[in-house]
Amino acid sequence: MKILHCPLNGPRNISEFVYGGQVKPMPNPESATDTEWAAYVFYENNSIGVVQEWWLHAPSSYWFIVERHNGSDTILRTYDPSELLSNPGMVSLEDAIQ
């Protein structure tokens, strides 16, 4: 069984975690076309390479981000989602709806 390093709880069996999907920026719900919104909701980027994913450590209800190479299943880095805020690719909801 794979071990995942939780930023809060340290190395744990993968069975303690819940996968939460890829990290993807939400398009502006006011201005996105139906097609763009459908792509955001339904499409996953399945190309081989490093992906950013949401993972939850279930016993502590702690969400964090995993950077994983989906070809080798190697985990490169795990970190608190607050780091995402400094990511210019993420559109903040405040910007989107105001």
């Binding site: 939460g20 209800s61 607050s82």
Partner: peptide
């Protein structure tokens, strides 16, 4: 629901 709430608020702050 709780997980979804926590995840959304990890983004909304």
């Amino acid at each position: 629901m709780v997980r979804e709430m926590l995840r959304w608020n990890a983004q909304w702050r």
